[in-house]
Amino acid sequence: MMAYMNPGPHYSVNALALSGPSVDLMHQAVPYPSAPRKQRRERTTFTRSQLEELEALFAKTQYPDVYAREEVALKINLPESRVQVWFKNRRAKCRQQRQQQKQQQQPPGGQAKARPAKRKAGTSPRPSTDVCPDPLGISDSYSPPLPGPSGSPTTAVATVSIWSPASESPLPEAQRAGLVASGPSLTSAPYAMTYAPASAFCSSPSAYGSPSSYFSGLDPYLSPMVPQLGGPALSPLSGPSVGPSLAQSPTSLSGQSYGAYSPVDSLEFKDPTGTWKFTYNPMDPLDYKDQSAWKFQIL
């Protein structure tokens, strides 16, 4: 009977010793046993002879290597770790002494450095960015050149030099007046198309007034536009458009034309069986010896 009264063996659950049927240790109110408190290391007290050895090595170098620390530790009968900690504390003490010396050398008012006064946003004049500046400075420094007289040679050079070769001289006033084509001369031969040399188009003023001019072949195509416009036809070669000034309004060009419109200028042929003959000019830059190549039959 006494065997049943004795408590059973101890069981360990999660490293906790349980005594038989008792489960009081598993209750929430019972805390787990805490780790033992780490003991504080005792402070090391250095003797005068030990301090002399350490100070002598510190005077040589503030960062001794492990071999120098072990050698000193053997002399003063201390572990190497204590020597390492002593050098660490000695360097910190040396830095603190240097900072105190710097503070003593500075004057009393030198510690508080005078800061520059901050400028207020409204006091300083700042350039306004509302208006974009002129990058080319046209509004201040540029002045347009004065327009020359209508009959000045410089204007003629600016007008005619675009179309004339570089080897030719500017046309005088008398020749510029001949550039304007007359109405009857352009409409006299509506079906004849003559190819003149390129030099005649640039230099010869008579080429624009003769039936064999460069633009005589364009007349049949330009004249039928007159009834559609409801007024006189516009002429690209009329009046002052080739003269001194090219800047004319469309209203000033509306009254200039080749001449009176005639039914002869239409595109319809009077004789459907007729042929169109292209007159060959020996001055043509295209060297075609066979003139029969310039004739064709309209079917």
Score class of each variant (00 low, 15 high):
Pro285Glu: 03
Thr61Phe: 10
Glu53Leu: 07
Ser167Glu: 04
Gln228Leu: 15
Lys60Leu: 12
Ser169Asn: 02
Gly178Val: 12
Pro263Trp: 11
Ala114Ser: 03
Leu253Gly: 04
Ala3Thr: 03
Pro116Tyr: 03
Thr61Asn: 03
Val30Cys: 05
Pro250Lys: 14
Leu299Arg: 00
Ser139Ala: 06
Ala73Cys: 14
Arg176Ala: 05
Leu18Asp: 00
Pro125Lys: 11
Leu136Pro: 06
Lys88Cys: 13
Tyr208Ser: 04
Ser216Leu: 14
Phe278Asn: 00
Ser12Pro: 04
Gly230Thr: 04
Gly20Met: 10
Asn77Asp: 10
Ala293Cys: 13
Leu78Pro: 14
His10Asn: 00
Leu179Met: 01
Asp287Trp: 14
Arg95Tyr: 13
Met283Ile: 10
Val23Gln: 01
Leu286Phe: 07
Val264Glu: 01
Tyr261Thr: 02
Thr251Cys: 08
Leu171Met: 05
Glu42Ala: 04
Gln97Lys: 06
Thr273Trp: 12
Gln248Val: 12
Lys102Leu: 04
Tyr221Phe: 08
Gly137Leu: 07
Leu218Gly: 00
Pro244Leu: 12
Pro153Gln: 05
Asn77Val: 13
Gln50Leu: 15
Ala112Gly: 03
Gly274Val: 07
Ile162Met: 00
Arg41Gln: 13
Tyr258Asp: 02
Asp24His: 14
Gly243Ala: 04
Ser185Ile: 14
Ser22Lys: 08
Ser252Gly: 01
Thr251Met: 10
Ser81Tyr: 12
Ile298Ala: 00
Ala156Glu: 03
Pro127Cys: 06
Val160Trp: 04
Lys289Pro: 05
Tyr142Arg: 11
Met2Phe: 11
Pro9Phe: 09
Pro285Tyr: 09
Asn77Leu: 08
Ala207Leu: 11
Ile76Ser: 15
Ser164Phe: 15
Pro9Cys: 08
Tyr221Asn: 00
Ala114Pro: 07
Arg115Lys: 05
Val72Ser: 15
Lys75Cys: 11
Pro107Cys: 05
Glu53Arg: 09
Val157Trp: 12
Asn281Arg: 15
Leu136Cys: 04
Pro220Cys: 13
Ser254Phe: 12
Leu146Asn: 04
Lys93Gly: 14
Leu18Ser: 01
Ala15Phe: 11
Leu253Cys: 02
Pro21Asn: 05
Cys132Trp: 06
Ser34Gly: 07
Ser152Ile: 07
Lys120Asn: 02
Ser206Asp: 04
Gly259Thr: 09
Ile298Tyr: 01
Pro250Ser: 08
Arg37Cys: 04
Leu136Glu: 09
Ala15Glu: 00
Ala114Val: 06
Pro220Gly: 04
Ala166Glu: 01
Leu18His: 00
Leu78His: 05
Pro9Leu: 11
Met2Ile: 09
Gln104Ser: 09
Val160Pro: 01
Pro285Lys: 14
Ser169Cys: 03
Ala114Met: 08
Gly137Cys: 04
Trp163Thr: 00
Tyr195Lys: 03
Met2Glu: 00
Ala192Met: 10
